[in-house]
């Protein structure tokens, strides 16, 4: 079961002067739900495009299911489902027609065709809309249709580039329910996302930065990597509170999010009273203050900051 389905060694892609992907090493096993996260411009899209065989590799090698991308870029296509970031369906075609179009390009046999399109439309909750033109579907439905299109040939590997960008939370959850379903069935999925709660749902997360993979582990372990606990403060006067908190001792890091402050500390239990006291002394009113669980997002920010610094 646990074979290496994706093997990447020293993968590099150079655009003019910039090394968009720079010596990437990564091995993904069959059945993983692998999340690719990282700041904008870190090289996530380029990596996925390289894996889909859409870009030439400048240096290094990558193999999908044992097919070397340098030599056999076309051999992998039947096994890979790729969904581009700006996936545009053909607006003039209906949902069903879009699906059939990709089915034929991926050589889905005609006897499977009907059963499979029905099932996928059902799966994506699009059965009532199958004759509606793609252009007239809502954003969330379009994304689900796009996913259905990439699933039509039952690929072994799914490459999804920010599939839920611009999708409302309800549709986003539905989308991820579909992904989880696929994951449970054993499809290998590589997904890039700017949503950290989505990263949390992956079996493994790779953190890319400047074209390199700098962390790669389970979400649980990544959250542990920052080696901190979090105290969440919602002050009345945000700016004043921030200034004060920055002066406090024994504090690892302060993250702001809107009007809330996330203070990274060694031990929440122990330091919460201290911090409460200090703030009170400085005359800073708070609406709420508590020890909060570490989310992927805070870990992400903290890790990126450490590299930046």
């Amino acid at each position: 079961m646990n074979e290496k389905i994706v093997e990447i060694e020293g993968l590099t892609r150079i655009f003019k002067k910039t090394r968009a992907v720079d010596g990437l090493h990564l091995i993904i096993e069959t059945g993983e739900l692998f999340g690719l996260v990282g700041p904008d411009g870190a090289g996530k899209t380029t990596t996925l495009r390289l894996l889909a065989g859409l870009l030439n590799i400048s240096e290094g090698t990558a193999a999908l299911m044992g097919f070397d991308l340098n030599n056999q870029p076309d051999s992998i296509k039947p096994y890979v489902g790729y969904m581009a970031q700006q996936f545009s369906l053909y607006g003039e075609l209906s949902a069903l027609e879009n699906l059939l179009f990709f089915a034929e390009l991926f050589d889905v046999s005609s006897k499977d065709l009907e059963e499979r399109t029905e099932r996928l439309l059902e799966f994506a909750g699009l059965l009532p809309f199958k004759n509606r033109r793609a252009a007239h579907l809502s954003g969330g439905m379009q994304k689900k249709l796009a996913l259905a299109c990439t699933l039509i040939h039952e690929p072994e590997i799914l490459l999804l580039d920010e599939p839920t960008t611009g999708v409302d939370p309800v549709s986003r959850r539905e989308f991820w329910n579909i992904l989880t379903e696929l994951h449970l069935r054993g499809t290998t999925i590589i997904v890039s996302t700017p949503y950290m709660d989505e990263a949390d749902r992956c079996s493994r997360v790779g953190l890319m930065y400047a074209g390199k993979l700098i962390e790669c582990d389970t979400p649980h372990n990544i959250r542990k990597k920052i080696d901190s606990e979090i105290i969440e403060v919602w002050p009345v006067n945000w700016q004043k509170a921030l200034d004060k908190v920055m002066e406090l001792e024994n504090i690892k890091e302060v993250q702001t999010y809107g009007e809330t402050l996330h203070i990274l500390v060694d031990s929440g239990e122990r330091q919460l009273p201290e911090i409460k006291r200090s703030l009170k002394k400085a005359g800073i009113e708070v609406r709420s203050i508590r020890v909060a669980p570490v989310h992927m997002e805070q870990a992400f920010i903290s890790l990126i900051r450490r590299i930046d610094a």
């Binding site: 065989g53 859409l54 296509k77 581009a84 545009s88 991926f106």
Partner: peptide, 10 residues
């Protein structure tokens, strides 16, 4: 942008 998707097919 539809070409990108097309190119990913066989």
């Amino acid at each position: 942008g539809t070409l990108e998707q097309l190119l990913a097919t066989p």
